[in-house]
Design a protein around this nucleic acid. Sequence first.
DNA 1: TCGATCAAGTTGTAGGACAACTATTGACTT
DNA 2: AAGTCAATAGTTGTCCTACAACTTGATCGA
Lengths: 253, 253
Amino acid sequence: MAIAKSPALPSLATTKGGRGSLATQVRDQLRTRILTHEWNEGKKIPSEFDLAGQYHVSRVTIRTALKALEAQGLLDIRHGSGAYVANFGTSIRAGLQELRSITDTIREMGFEPGMTHRVVKRRGATADEALRLQIAEGEPVLYMERAILADDEVVAYSYDAVAIRDLPEKSIGEMGKGSVFGAFAKLGIFPVRALAEIHAISSMDIGWGKGRPKSGLYLLLKQLHFLRDGVPVMASDTYFVEGRFQFIIHRTL
Amino acid sequence: MAIAKSPALPSLATTKGGRGSLATQVRDQLRTRILTHEWNEGKKIPSEFDLAGQYHVSRVTIRTALKALEAQGLLDIRHGSGAYVANFGTSIRAGLQELRSITDTIREMGFEPGMTHRVVKRRGATADEALRLQIAEGEPVLYMERAILADDEVVAYSYDAVAIRDLPEKSIGEMGKGSVFGAFAKLGIFPVRALAEIHAISSMDIGWGKGRPKSGLYLLLKQLHFLRDGVPVMASDTYFVEGRFQFIIHRTL
DNA sequence: TCGATCAAGTTGTAGGACAACTATTGACTT
DNA sequence: AAGTCAATAGTTGTCCTACAACTTGATCGA
């Protein structure tokens, strides 16, 4: 095998300590290569052996990365044959089961994300919030009501409650401005998992402002975000205006 | 380490050729052990080394299985520490991203599944069906309209179109009776992946019969089922009556 | 009492080897 | 000439061993 080094492969973990394990980094880079159509749908990607050569890692690491991508529905690995790019239509994009901020998702879909805050305050937790966040009723939470925009059009209304616990007081102001996850990251808080419940809702009491949909039809994503150790940090009820956002789920065995 | 063989571990692949790879079999057995609460939520499961001993397989195989379970949100693997059972509330159960028949899911939730057929016929594909199933308009499809029941209560109405292609004529009758996936399995057809789109729908034209919900509020799961090689075999629009079925999604990084 | 250090345990990565499976080629038979 | 079968190279699946990187709790010392 010739050591044909790919021209523009970003090196692994050169800058800023390279978040996560080697396999994770390889997975993310391979995902990018797949999503940018470096290999056509249904076509075979290089063998594990070749990829190990390209990235200068062991076959074990490559396998771990490939298996992860298979679990996410991007690859189809066949024993004795090779790994193939899963072929759906052209849509695919980011599935719902991948945890990322709404803002990022909107941006990735090619729109300009925006946000307007109607309420940002600190108050005691309601009974429901206390139950979900595993805190006592009345314990302080950061409560927000926001409208989420894509290209200046409202796509969702979100009602969020963040458990304060040992959050520094000054950081609360941060939350009221940009992305919540951005503010989390600055504090070293990284939600790694969310449990979401989905409902269809018809109500005139959800949206506000002039962008409010007349139909009152929403897809409710009732989420609870967890830290690595299972501690819940944020409960958010996000009402997506039906039709303005495409929700996709990959289902695999 | 003592070779303390667990008393009731089903042996791997003793009967009927043992479907799938070793790692897949181990994954399924471990999943069962997790879902039956053999280990409490948040607690550590045995080390990879121990598990390898229990199942008489290599650590690599155990790792592959554990990684798969982590991707499904059942485990949380921490470098240098161990693998922990993910702790959400008690709900969890089967997430939406796991592909399985509605019937099985209902049964697993502790209800008695049922089904009534309103329409089962062979007809030409509509434009939309042709597009989704990647066949020509007018090509024959098996079209069905079914009501899906749990404990004799309607939980969903489903409109399905199965691509006939080289389906034997006699098997079409089978479809009209029990589970569609059961009929598929008998023919050696195994959908391994589905792409689902979610919508909130408010309409009085969906349900029928006396169990029809007065609200007309549904959660629409617009699905397309694929074979391993990416060939679409069934397009189904399933309207779940809002509130009668709990939809859960695990979201991970 | 508090902090640093150490040691044991666990997951992550490496490398080599072989088994199991797939797809293609080429020879052979009819 | 066409079809069948066997050999073969290429690829993923599993095993083994070893060590690196990380976590956790115990130990020791100031």
